[in-house]
Amino acid sequence: MNPLTLNHYLLASGLLFSLGFAGVMLRRNIITIFMCLELMLNAANLSLVAFSRFHVGADGLPNYNAQVLVFFIITVAAAEVAVGLAIIVALYRARQTTHVEDIQSLKF
């Protein structure tokens, strides 16, 4: 079996991202759409960690800047989920629905 390369990880990451985007396009339930967004974020995390491991520095360690970025993404994503879900709850209270097709009133 061939040894693993960076491209394997990038491919896996890209496919995961595409899956997330397809989910955003297909699903109607706003919570599922939100989950798909998380999927896309994590796809980005995967490629970042792969790059981190790929760039071994002079000290023989991976490049940790990328991992710090991943750490920040996870933190921000957590905050985003909290706020997003709160908005969804507020929306549900007002409209009794979580289907995006039922929510069209922003235009007028």
């Binding site: 040894p3 693993l4 390369t5 960076l6 491209n7 491991r53 790929f54 071994v56 360690l61």
Partner: peptide
């Protein structure tokens, strides 16, 4: 990107 991952120095 087609190269294998380099070994760690530690």
């Amino acid at each position: 990107g087609a190269k294998p991952f380099p070994a760690l120095g530690v």
